[in-house]
Design a protein around this nucleic acid. Structure first.
Lengths: 147, 147
DNA sequence: CTTTTTGACTTTCTCTGACTTTCAACATAT
DNA sequence: ATATGTTGAAAGTCAGAGAAAGTCAAAAAG
């Protein structure tokens, strides 16, 4: 079996504890596998591309490291699923419930939550009941699509 | 973990009581972390730059010290200024112009831009002309307040 | 030919210490 | 009493050493 495949597998196993980001040290890992450090770069650039669902960051210098994040696209699936299930109308209360769900599933961050909430709040819309819930549904779904 | 990161964190924790300015003594801090004093300068110059929202002053000599102030960059002032100058109504075109200004001044990022735009677009609001521009103005201003 | 492996060279970030500058307090001379 | 000099206690600067990671092209393997 190829070195690269072994290293790939090793790195992927690091995600097994359920964390969505792991950190490695290039030299340390290279030493562990008895290969040159740049082999690690090779593995990362061929096996942990964005198109494969990973996002990579790094820092050089003393205490430097490489961080690999798993970007789960279940997020998008989940959002699409929600959007499909939101009808033509949405109350402010519905929005609150959805937002707190999203937050607890890490679908959105707190800033996005605030924006969603404020853009769809009764005070901001200030429309008649029948219009309000319809406009709110449209704004909410369209914003979600862009998160 | 790097020395610099630890010192950075320590200093940032000093702000935790809500104060917007803290004072340290370079030598004392260096001693506390068992590093050379100039390491403190390094941390300050790399982690407490104006672009990161901090303003630093110091005094040498007996009883000298370093003061670090948290400055809310004029980003907020600018946003407030804009909000005040937006009237009761706002067209989709106005929004486009404002958004591209914000982007070029780094007041918002592209994601926020998308959310602002989508939440205020004609297609999403789908309201009569007179209502539309009023609702749009309210949504836009309130979202801006939360960015 | 394509993918993998290797290593020489580069870039970035951190840490350190020697040397410099500034300030306040105290001392001395006019 | 005022001005000047001295000293010690800070903080500042800067360049070099060290610690990672990045790049790229040649060699090797498949």
């Amino acid at each position: 079996m190829r070195m690269s495949d072994i290293i790939e597998e090793f790195i992927k196993d690091l995600f097994d504890d359920g964390s969505d980001a792991i950190e490695i040290q290039r030299n340390e890992l290279a030493e562990h596998f008895n290969c040159v450090p740049s082999q690690i770069n090779y593995v990362i650039s061929t096996r942990f591309k964005p198109s494969q669902g990973y996002y990579v960051e790094s820092r050089r210098g003393g205490g430097g490291h490489i961080t690999i994040k798993k970007v789960n696209n279940d997020k998008e699936d989940y959002i699409m699923h929600i959007i499909k299930n939101i009808g033509d109308e949405l109350t402010a209360n519905d929005v609150d419930i959805l937002i707190s769900d999203f937050l607890s599933y890490d679908i959105i961050d707190t800033k996005e939550a605030k924006l969603l909430k404020v853009a769809t709040s009764d005070n901001v819309l200030k429309l008649s009941k029948d219009l309000k819930d319809k406009v709110r549904a449209r704004i909410f779904k369209n914003m979600l699509l862009n998160i």
